[in-house]
Amino acid sequence: LPGADSKVPGARVDAKPTPYKDVSTYNNYYEFSTDKSQPARLAGTLKTEPWTVSIEGLVKKPMKMGIDELLKLAPMEERIYRLRCVEAWSMVVPWVGYSLSSLIDHVQPLGSAKYIEFVTLADKAQMPGLSSGVLEWPYREGLRMDEARHPLTLLTFGLYGEVLPKQNGAPLRVIVPWKYGFKSAKSLVAIRFLEAMPTSSWMRSAPSEYGFYANVNPQVDHPRWSQSSERPIGGGLFAKRQATQMFNGYGPQVASLYAGMDLRHYF
């Protein structure tokens, strides 16, 4: 799945990508397992073809789109993004996809649509982790419409020039590089346009610990660990932690979305 170099500002971070092996074997994908090494072993049961995404809610053209149609909707771009997990580790990943705004324009949201909700596949037959009560399934995430329309928000189909490995959220996921990784929902089956702010799975499970915005912010700690630094994955046993950047380093592109907001309150 080749992608052309993206022209979107901030789309190609100047850092060495994390090795493919690490990107594809260290995954938080609770629908398979809470152990990060397990999704790579277990996700073989995920059936990614045929695949349909249901576009619902406040749009002029609600529709069901097949994966082939989605792949052809806009030209593929390669974007080298930093990925910062809320667990204080980080990677650099060359993703392949196109701006989510292309899809949003295609389905024409109504003026009343203020938020967008992502719903992940939840099928017990394919996903052994669903039998655990860790979260309420299906996994849900959401963005404000201006965040969803931001050119850096990527509808993602591949990484390292290849189709997404199943454990990385095949066949399509969203990537929001300035937010903690859990905002970037995997294996999407529905995208909903809503007037009211949706409640994400993590907000539902621990509202005091996970807010709707989840912007990477070194000044706002998680209640049980510091967010001021992160461990880069792929550097080996003695890799030094590095300082976490505000908005994961995407401040120049996205800080204006939050002008005037108290990011301690809207965490």
């Binding site: 690490d22 090494s37 580790w89 461990r231 080996g236 003695f238």
Partner: peptide
């Protein structure tokens, strides 16, 4: 594992 690189992507966390 530290020498043979068998501790996964985050060896420090594994230990």
């Amino acid at each position: 594992g530290a020498f043979a690189d068998t501790l996964g992507a985050n060896p420090a966390e594994a230990i």
